[in-house]
């Protein structure tokens, strides 16, 4: 009995003391099944062991703050620019001087002080039911607040960071008063209460429970690959209407990393063609490196013009965005 207890205790406590033995430690908010193929490919290619700790981005940032100089983390990967901006503001990330990263990642998709870089791109755009909506009826995110969409719009909960970032990006080109009006309009136009997931939202559009909504592109790619939601189409807001809101999966080098050289190597590898294909394709996202093609389903939706608001500004607007969201009672 006591032997069993000791065995279980050792297996649980072992990770507490194994932190120093790993070559690289990743803190990542990206799902395990999406990050593991990338790690395995790197381990195979370079023989470097990588340990990854998954969690919500907010919790991982708190963890980095708590651990301070003793953190075992070398790299932070999040699925939203806002979290990377916050981590950089908290002085948790360090500047990376790398020609490879600077040449591969467009300037709009990296920190101006080179503390974080995008690895893949996700577009959060407008989707519509092709049986019920004509594309010419659609214009922009703020246009979805128009009364003509009353009882036709579906939204995901504002608790999700993706929507907070979308609103933060709108703050970059709208004043608070107009944005508040837009948010209230969205709430008034809802056909259903807010959804907890983009997948459920897209299914609702497909089933005609609502006609139009906002979601990340990869959710539709997954559904359509399974033969579902074929009647749901993508709409890209034009440049004149502010463009398409894009967010990133990004990577930053932790300030207190004990393996800076190895960590930088890994970051540079992430923008190689091989890694880009694995990283972006695993989740049907857009690669950030020019010349690396996206998966066919994304290609079939055609090109789009991104919202020019810098990601750093979006990150900095996030708290104000949350305040406006709460004021509009967008739950």
């Amino acid at each position: 009995m006591s032997r069993w207890f000791c065995l279980i205790l050792i297996s649980i406590l072992a990770p507490l003391h194994s932190q120093g033995g790993e070559a690289l430690t990743l803190y990542t908010s990206r799902n395990t099944e999406l990050i593991e193929p990338v790690i395995q490919a790197y381990e195979k290619a370079f023989g470097v062991k990588i340990k990854h700790i998954n969690g919500a981005a907010g919790s991982l940032i708190q963890k980095l703050i708590r651990e301070g100089k003793n953190t075992p983390a070398d790299i932070l990967i999040t699925v939203d620019a806002g979290h990377l901006v916050h981590a950089a503001d908290q002085n948790l990330l360090q500047k990376v001087s790398s020609k490879i990263l600077e040449q591969s990642v467009p300037s709009a998709l990296r920190d101006s002080q080179s503390r974080w870089f995008a690895v893949s791109l996700r577009a959060r755009t407008i989707f519509y039911n092709a049986d019920k909506v004509e594309p010419k009826e659609l214009k922009s995110y703020s246009d979805l607040a128009d009364p003509k969409w009353k009882g036709r719009l579906c939204l995901r909960t504002s608790r999700k960071v993706y929507n907070q970032s979308l609103v933060a990006s709108l703050l970059g080109r709208m004043n608070e008063k107009d944005l508040s009006r837009t948010l209230s309009g969205w709430v008034d136009n809802l056909a259903r209460p807010v959804f907890t997931s983009d997948t459920h939202l897209l299914e609702a559009i497909a089933n005609g429970k609502c006609e139009v909504g906002i979601a990340n592109t990869y959710y539709l790619a997954r559904l359509q690959r399974d033969g579902q939601a074929k009647n749901v189409k993508v709409f890209w807001p034009s440049k004149e209407n502010g463009g398409v809101h894009v967010n990133i999966s990004g990577v930053g080098l932790v300030k207190e990393s004990k393996n800076k050289e190895q960590a930088q190597k890994f970051m540079e590898w992430l923008v190689s063609e091989e890694a880009q294909k694995i990283f972006a394709n695993a989740n049907d996202e857009y690669p950030v490196v020019h010349g690396v093609p996206p998966v066919p389903v994304l290609k079939s939706w055609g090109p789009f013009v991104s919202d020019p608001t810098p990601l750093t500004e979006i990150g900095k607007n996030q708290k104000r965005a949350i305040l406006l969201i709460d004021k509009a009672r967008y739950r």
Partner: peptide
């Protein structure tokens, strides 16, 4: 209950009363 009667449900109960929030 949210999974069954909330926004993503097929029951359409939200037409009579909203439960989320």
């Amino acid at each position: 209950y949210i999974g069954n009667l909330g926004a993503s449900s097929d029951w359409g109960i939200y037409h009579w009363f909203e439960i989320q929030g």
